[in-house]
């Protein structure tokens, strides 16, 4: 299902509505260009999962994994942007997260589609213009 958002706030709001149905154990694959709203979407997820507001949800490009704890469900935020080879997922210990009770969100997941479970939820982000984004739940 496709949605059009017209600001970062609308992208977050969409993420919050989506997050209401999360029960834990979900794996969410976020794909789309730089600046398409992937991290922004995860900020909305965190808000809806009652992650404490003192915990900042940031781009995990550098850290590769950010963990946000203390909410209704734990949220694990991955970014494959810098990874060069699927074998590196093992060294990150990704399996532990994928089979946890928390919610796992992965930016740039389409770099290694074969390494991720088939039951994952895919969401594609497309830049329409400076402020508008098309967000497609596959």
């Amino acid at each position: 299902m496709k949605h059009l958002t017209k600001s970062p706030e609308e992208t977050q709001k969409l993420a919050e509505e989506f997050a209401r149905n999360l029960k834990g154990g979900e794996i969410i694959l976020l794909n789309g260009d730089l600046g398409a709203g992937k991290t922004c979407f995860v900020q909305g997820l965190a808000s809806a999962l009652d992650i404490p507001p003192t915990v900042y949800v940031r781009s995990p490009t550098f850290a590769l994994i950010n963990e946000y704890l203390g909410g209704r469900l734990s949220l694990y935020h991955f970014d494959f942007y810098r990874l060069g080879d699927p074998s590196e997922l093992d060294s990150l210990g990704i399996e532990e997260y994928l089979f946890s009770d928390g919610v796992t969100a992965i930016e740039w997941a389409d770099k290694f589609p074969d390494e991720l479970p088939e039951n994952a939820i895919s969401i594609n982000f497309r830049v329409i213009d400076e402020n508008s984004r098309e967000i497609n739940f596959l």
Binding site: P8, E9, Q12, K13, L34, G44, A48, P53, Y56, E130
Partner: peptide, 24 residues
């Protein structure tokens, strides 16, 4: 433009918007 779910600190930063502006 206070982001939801975030308790702002007085001297916070944001660079995502500038990155996106360069991209456009």
């Amino acid at each position: 433009r206070t982001l939801k779910g975030v308790t702002p600190r007085e001297f916070d930063f944001s660079f995502s918007g500038i990155k996106t502006a360069v991209l456009h």
